[in-house]
Design a protein around this nucleic acid. Structure first.
Lengths: 244, 244
DNA sequence: ACCTGAACACCGTTCAAGT
DNA sequence: ACCTGAACACCGTTCAAGT
């Protein structure tokens, strides 16, 4: 039909919209700076816009220069995931001593949620990249956070098994909720930021009387309250794990 | 690479000799057959191997022929998601009258789980493709299933609001659990089916004493039981929604 | 009516060469 | 030491042309 304006070959000026991080002179390339540029590109133009060549040009450099710091595109994606979840370490709300494990998990959950909402286009990557080991679960997919998580719970009297079960249940909760939340706000940027077609072509809804009746309620966004409620329920459930 | 041995028999000259009698028999290309080939490619070689050219060659046809049935790669991905979740309709365990909503949700959940495990490389697509409307939630992302879901619950005495809340909670549960489950079994095929590096380089674990101690337990796979348990918990929680 | 050949713009990645 | 130019093998997609 019509050429997709945000497809890679579209306009190329898109690169011009984002000012190069450090025009020309560029003080030294490094892994961290490259990953930062990549994350900015994803945040503004979506995953599909992430290209070795484009990351290079954002840094005032040819694509090939990147290979001196990061051994390829796959490694870049892994690095992006790592950098984004590491933002948790800079979050004073999370990285602190906590009175009890409930408080710890509350802060941790909200910290991860903040990250997901700040980088909605990156979160699917966090959710689906293969983890370092099969027992490392997204979205808390760093050994450091796993250690912290398990340590805190065991310190609070959880048995080893209960702590492990809690990690798994907590991961599944966060993954489901947050992926749903970012996907609802249009992650993966499907077609185009084109004319909003309204809430689904009404024609489609004709065959679904219930959807038609409920679509106003379906469209209401209660994700924040839902998150709090489900988190509360989860914590209560974990409490029963603790005593085994 | 190598010609696929179970691709449509014979050069397609047969189709030239025999005028297409029945679309979808032997030689005729159609949307459904194309999507089927695409799904087989993903199942066997992963998402990254899915290429217009490769789908074409699997069907004994040039890549460009596909564009007469499907308007591009994005549309193909959407079609794949649609076809895979539509497998639910063929599942007699699911598509049946049910004594109560608990039974219905149980069967539905297990049906979706079966699909996820049958197509672990497709599930991330189901999880992350932008849905038709923001209120359509993966993985139950078809209007038809949403209608069925809401209808069943409302028939069982749920209020409109409670039914909607149940749909959302159910979606989040399925998404979290199943994405975790398929990602643990190595979805998104990271680098290559190369030499298995064992369960994480032991060097990494040196700094994480707890992970070291718990790694045997972390590696145990209890996903099936966890699924049952969490589903049970969810159903109990939904029961409290019902009375509002 | 249905498919193809050739072409285009863009990829990731390599490697020898430049500074 | 750090980056680039040129090249290669692959993409998705178009369009006019073949049968």
């Amino acid at each position: 039909m019509v050429v997709d304006p945000d497809s890679p070959q579209g306009r190329g000026d898109a690169a011009a919209v984002l000012p190069a991080v450090r025009p020309g002179a560029g003080g030294g390339l490094d892994r961290r700076r490259i990953l930062g540029a990549a994350i900015e590109i994803i945040d503004t133009d979506g995953l599909r816009a992430l290209t070795m060549r484009r990351v290079g040009s954002r840094l005032g450099v040819e694509a090939m220069a990147i290979y001196h710091y990061i051994p390829g595109r796959e490694a870049m994606l892994d690095g992006i995931v790592e950098v984004v979840i590491d933002e948790l370490y800079g979050d004073p709300d999370v990285y602190l001593a906590h009175p009890d494990w409930q408080e710890y998990l509350q802060r941790l959950a909200h910290g991860v949620r903040r990250i997901a909402l700040a980088h909605p286009e990156v979160f699917p990557l966090i959710a689906t990249r293969p983890p370092a080991a099969p027992w490392v679960r997204p979205p808390l997919r760093s050994l450091r956070w796993m250690e912290s998580f398990l340590h805190t719970l065991i310190d609070c009297g959880f048995s080893d098994r209960a702590a492990v079960a809690a990690y798994q249940a907590f991961s599944s909760f966060l993954l489901g909720h947050l992926l749903l939340e970012v996907s609802a706000q249009g992650a993966d940027i499907g077609p185009i930021p084109e004319a909003d077609p309204g809430p689904v072509k009404p024609a489609d809804l004709d065959e679904y009387p219930l959807l038609q009746r409920l679509s106003p309620q379906l469209a209401e966004d209660h994700s924040a309250e839902e998150f709090e409620e489900s988190l509360e329920t989860l914590l209560n459930r974990l409490e029963t794990f603790g005593k085994d």
